[in-house]
Write a protein that binds this DNA or RNA. Structure first.
Length: 602
DNA sequence: CAGTGAGCGAGCTTCCGCTTGACTT
């Protein structure tokens, strides 16, 4: 018997279908060992040795897996092909103990198709110890930061507070945004627009003043524009130049976890947490691929199925000559899984709509309704991602106004038009309407053509403060900076709310006073640790460990050399201010000076 | 003699990341 171990039980079931009786497939359900929850669990002086323990509640599962590994003739560790998956495979081996000379392989695949599975099992590889070391370094850094800074923050702020590489960076974004809003000074700008028409075409168009006597101008008051507008009554208008540019707008890539959470929030009003609950259900029932992913790549089988469906349902005009290839732009992407897509495009969203005749209680119907809507969103986005680009013609005209053509007292206006020549993927997955309609159609214009002025308008534009984050847009901001992972996004935005650092009002997130105090404490004393690029810098080092160019010890030592003195300094400040001040006085902490550039560079 | 400090032990917290059920509200 040959044994395959994967993480997800749903995956195990599917893979078993592809293999014959000589194979046995088991699932380990994610991590099986970790640092103990109740203590630090890292022996700093012993090369940062982690003290791993079997995760609570997983004892029976681990015993079962170990028994299966001992019995098997050959073992294929097929945990996810990323840093965490490599570590899980290593933990499995550690727990299994002595396996004699039994062949042990590491199998890696990113799509659950018959071909992908068979070829992964036919061409296995050894375990990558460097990747395991990188995971261990990641884990230890997170533990040291979380378990050493949290108590300090609690002491200093006299309450129960927590800090972590991810949650504190998230909190900081929310707090910084709130301050930008508080400090915001609205700017008023006035604009002058004229409505114009040609002799030939019936419909009018609008042009906005941009230059006066050859100089670009912005107006913060109304009065000068009113004066200019008066003179327009006797002016002539003519076309200076026109330019037409064709732009093709590529289809959006299929969904990842973060982009699905964004879209489900924007179009269906679902929270990231609810989106993930429903997506997990759809995954377990075989409707969609794995829902926790940062990959935008798609199995070739799925691409050709989508191409068949596009021809059948929409026609060859919507089919690009080659299937599009999407490239990941996310910093910390591991791409262990495909993009989120229907497992079978021929399962149409209509098939999942709730049966109207069935009698069910309201909650169940709304669950099914949300599931159907989410599936429809995923289906449309995926099929659209395989369609042709949309084609849009942008026209820009410069219009002059003066006493007579060729003798301007010269005012220059800009008019813009936009025509969609081909809808392409937008047939299935459109943009938001507002942007689309803001630029109207322009009539045919020739250079030096005279125009009729129909009227004018002077408008006030007041700049708006930045928007508060929503749960989904905060996740997008974190993803963009490489902070957090698909499996943790939804939980993390729930955590900072549950801890009382952030409040949600409708869709908007705003910090609480406690949240601001915590963020200020962390920024003052541990600025670089929780800066928004700290994770990216750590990731770059972890990549080096994974590539064998940096050792785990070197990474952790250089981290500790910077972190530990800072920690000690802050702890000392806290005890000093505790003892030097009367008990009734609030604790005031003075910032520690940043090291100079010389000290900072090793 | 009263206040302070050192030293010790108990109790209570805390991180990120991977996966699903078995619980309670």
């Amino acid at each position: 018997m040959k044994l395959v171990i994967v993480e997800s039980p749903a995956k195990a079931k599917k893979i078993a279908e592809f293999l014959d009786d000589s194979w046995h497939v088991e699932a380990c359900r994610g991590h099986i060992r970790d640092l103990p929850e109740t203590e630090l669990g890292v022996e700093v002086a012993q090369d940062f040795r982690p003290q791993y323990v079997v995760l609570p509640g997983k004892g029976n599962l681990v015993r079962r897996l170990v028994r299966a590994m001992r019995r098997a003739e050959e073992i294929y560790l097929a945990t996810d092909p990323d840093r965490e998956g490599e570590a899980i495979a290593w933990h499995l081996l550690q727990l299994a103990g002595d396996l004699d000379d039994k062949p042990v392989h590491r199998a890696r695949f990113t799509a659950i198709t018959r071909d992908a599975i068979r070829s992964a099992l036919a061409y296995p590889a050894p375990l990558n110890a460097d990747l395991v070391a990188a995971q261990s370094a990641r884990r230890v850094v997170d533990r040291l930061v979380g378990y050493l800074v949290s108590p300090l923050a609690s002491q200093a702020l006299d309450g129960r507070f927590s800090a972590g590489r991810v949650q504190s960076a998230a909190l900081r974004l929310v707090v910084e945004r709130e301050r930008e809003i508080a400090d915001f000074q609205p700017q008023t700008a006035w604009t002058l627009s004229v409505q114009l028409a040609t002799q030939q075409a019936p419909q009018s168009f609008e042009a906005r003043l941009v230059q006066v006597k050859g100089e670009k101008r912005r107006f913060s008051q109304r009065q000068p524009l009113d004066q200019l507008a008066e003179r327009l009554a006797t002016a002539q208008f003519w076309v200076g130049s026109t330019r037409r540019v064709m732009r093709s707008q590529s289809a959006p890539p299929p969904f990842t976890t973060a982009s699905l959470q964004q879209a489900a929030s924007a179009t269906l009003g679902l929270s990231p947490e609810r989106t993930m609950t429903i997506a997990q259900m759809l995954y377990e029932q075989g409707w969609i691929t794995y829902p926790r992913t940062d990959g935008v790549q798609v199995a070739t089988e799925a691409q050709s199925a989508a191409r068949d469906l596009i021809v059948e349902r929409y026609g060859t005009d919507y089919l690009p000559p080659e299937p599009p290839r999407y490239v990941n732009r996310v910093i910390n992407a591991q791409e262990a899984h495909e993009a989120i897509r229907p497992t079978d495009v021929h399962l149409l969203p209509e098939h999942l709509l709730p049966d109207e005749n069935a009698e069910e209680d309201a909650e169940e119907v709304s669950d099914k309704g949300d599931a159907a809507r989410l599936y429809r969103l995923i289906w449309r986005r995926f099929v659209a991602s395989q369609m042709t680009p949309a084609l849009i013609a942008h026209t820009r005209a410069v219009i002059y106004a003066g006493k007579r053509i060729g003798q301007p007292f010269p005012l220059a206006f800009h008019a813009r038009g936009r025509i969609q020549l081909w809808e392409g993927h937008r047939r299935l997955y459109g943009e938001t309407e507002t942007e689309e309609n803001s630029d109207a159609l322009l009539p045919q214009l020739k250079d030096n053509q005279l125009l009729t002025r129909l009227g004018h308008r002077v408008d006030e534009h007041i700049s708006r403060p930045p928007q508060r984050y929503s749960e989904a847009s905060l996740i997008a901001a974190l993803e963009q900076r490489g902070i957090g992972r698909p499996a943790t996004y939804a939980g993390m935005v729930a955590t900072i709310q549950a801890r009382g650092y952030v409040l949600r009002e409708g869709q908007q997130l705003r910090p609480t006073p406690d949240g601001e105090r915590l963020a200020d404490f962390l920024t003052t004393h541990f600025d670089r640790l929780f800066a928004s690029d700290a994770t990216a810098l750590l990731e770059a080092q972890l990549d080096q460990v994974a590539a064998g160019k940096l050792t785990r010890s070197a990474l952790l030592e250089s981290f500790w050399d910077e972190f530990q003195p800072r920690l000690a300094q802050v702890a000392q400040r806290i005890t000093e201010s505790r003892s030097s001040e009367a008990k009734s006085q609030p604790l005031v902490l003075h910032p520690i000076a940043e090291p100079t550039a010389d000290e900072a560079t090793p």
